[in-house]
Design a binder for these strands. Sequence first.
DNA 1: AATATATCCGAGTAAACCGCTCGGAATTGT
DNA 2: ACAATTCCGAGCGGTTTACTCGGATATATT
Lengths: 148, 148
Amino acid sequence: MKLSTKGRYGIKAMVDLATEYESGEKLSIAQLSERQGISCAYLEQLIALLKKAGLVTAARGAQGGYTLARAPESISVGEVLKALEGSTALVDCVGTGGTDCENVCSCAARPLWLKLQRRIDDVLDSTTIKDMAEDYIVQREHTAGIEK
Amino acid sequence: MKLSTKGRYGIKAMVDLATEYESGEKLSIAQLSERQGISCAYLEQLIALLKKAGLVTAARGAQGGYTLARAPESISVGEVLKALEGSTALVDCVGTGGTDCENVCSCAARPLWLKLQRRIDDVLDSTTIKDMAEDYIVQREHTAGIEK
DNA sequence: AATATATCCGAGTAAACCGCTCGGAATTGT
DNA sequence: ACAATTCCGAGCGGTTTACTCGGATATATT
């Protein structure tokens, strides 16, 4: 029942990209990797997933980099997680893609999984990358203040 | 972000045991395995975890078996899951056992994980094995009716 | 045109985890 | 004594995780 680093790192990268959305600045893998403390080569793969899902756009070549494909307030955390992990379903039989489980209607646990999944998706779908970026900026400034 | 079979099978076994709690009947691994369609040898391991956590009590020897250690209404699903999976935390840094993550206060994602975890634990801690057993019994009777 | 800087892409890999099996020791009712 | 059980540790094939690496491709700058 753990979230993998894919999900965690990918979210962090998206939040970081969101902080540059207003200015339109691009961020390269190297920059993102540096700022978030994630391995370059690995991050590259995660960004590829986000790109495939149409969440970020890339500019190739020198001075290239990535930007958010849409406004951060229009991107939900759930959407990002889905792009990275394939699905946010805790149990296969409550995923959006239906189920292979043939005894759904005699499974004692299914009502619980459904309820649980609904709560999870509530949070995931109602939180946007912009919400997170705002928290992040506040935190960053606060930390900077302490270090002075 | 998947729940393993440990958690799923273990919950099913607990629910099955709950249906026999009133009568005081024991269920052997073989019976549980048969009734829930889970491999004997594997189920044995899961039950061992539940026993270690004090959720079931065992009677050894011939005519032995397992019973719930406490009333099913006093056992939350969260407790069972914790015994089986070690923790219900989606991300290590929001687990009950504190965190090893040294940059908690500069992590953009932590507020999200905290919120998400709180929602999950709400559901898990407020649902009891008895609740599930009741659903299960209703379902069983309904299915039996259809088959006639 | 050359070069440096990027993204893109596929392959590989060590370690952990999952889901499960097996063999046998210990215990206890009949 | 015997059969039915729980108890316990070890093993194991397959998948996933969390990476790394090497090189092809694109492009801004000089």
